[in-house]
Design a protein around this nucleic acid. Structure first.
Length: 256
DNA sequence: ATGACTCCCAGTGGGAGA
């Protein structure tokens, strides 16, 4: 089975691209971030017409997440239980025996900002919740827009980005803490082309110059790791006429 | 270079994203 994550930066704008991508890549699971739609405006009928079930959790203007699946998704959770949050950032469900968590991690804006403080609180709450989820569901995938570049090799200019948002030691420590729960970065299980990014700034011809960051990730639990067959970033949608600034990340997992 | 682009809600500009 294939699972994918994609920050679409407005599903209202990107729905045609998502449907086109699903036709070419009929993955079993796709989680979306930054849908930017309240639930009453979510394009449920169009997605179901494409052969997917869908769960969603959105709000006006910002954030918003969705879980698309071929099979039934059960035990749906919206946002982090016990963490009071006005922002719609998490959707989880169990599909084909795999506990699937789709998340839009806070951006954090700048290390000295209130938004960074929120990002740290959110990361701690996510960590504690995922630890509990793993105890209940050994086969687990945590994927989405992490807004963290875990290593310098995930940054096109690590010197310029040193200490900047997405690259601070605090954010990277949180990423390692998630790994410490027994989760592994599926992308790094395989040899990858150097300068592999999942996001490129809209500005300054960044995509054409391949100046980007790898901040969208698929983390798999230890129980699932032996079943991971591949993990790739699909740059093609970034070449569309009106692209999201993020590209989809796809993992292939052997069916038991 | 406190920029650049895109989205949203707004309303002929500004916040946020990363």
């Amino acid at each position: 089975m294939q699972l994918a994550t994609w920050n679409v930066n407005s599903l209202a704008v990107r729905l045609p691209q998502v449907l086109e991508w699903l036709t070419a890549h009929p993955v079993e699971v796709l989680v979306l971030q930054e849908t930017k739609l309240t639930d009453d405006k979510f394009p449920q009928a169009e997605i179901e017409a494409a052969g997917y079930r869908v769960q969603f959790h959105g709000q006006k203007t910002y954030n918003g997440v969705a879980l698309l699946s071929r099979g039934d998704a059960t035990d749906i959770v919206r946002n982090i239980p016990g963490f009071d949050d006005a922002q719609a950032r998490v959707i989880a469900g169990t599909v084909d025996g795999v506990r699937t968590i789709g998340a839009y991690f806070p951006n954090g804006q700048a290390p000295d900002s209130d938004k960074f403080v929120y990002k740290m609180r959110w990361l701690q709450a996510l960590h504690d919740w995922v630890r509990d989820e793993l105890a209940r569901h050994p086969a687990l995938v945590l994927m989405g827009d992490f807004n963290i570049a875990p290593e310098d090799c995930d940054v096109y200019d690590p010197v310029a980005w040193a200490g900047q948002i997405h690259c601070t030691p605090e954010e990277r420590a949180h990423f390692r803490a998630l790994a410490g729960l027994g989760l592994v970065d599926a992308f790094r299980l395989f040899e990858q082309p150097p300068k592999s990014w999942s996001w490129w700034d809209y500005r300054n011809l960044a995509f054409r110059k391949n100046q980007g960051l790898r901040i969208d990730h698929i983390l798999v639990s230890a129980a699932l790791q032996p079943r991971v067959l591949a993990c790739t970033i699909d740059k093609l949608p970034r070449k569309n006429e009106r692209p999201s600034d993020h590209a989809p990340v796809v993992a292939k997992i052997a069916v038991q």
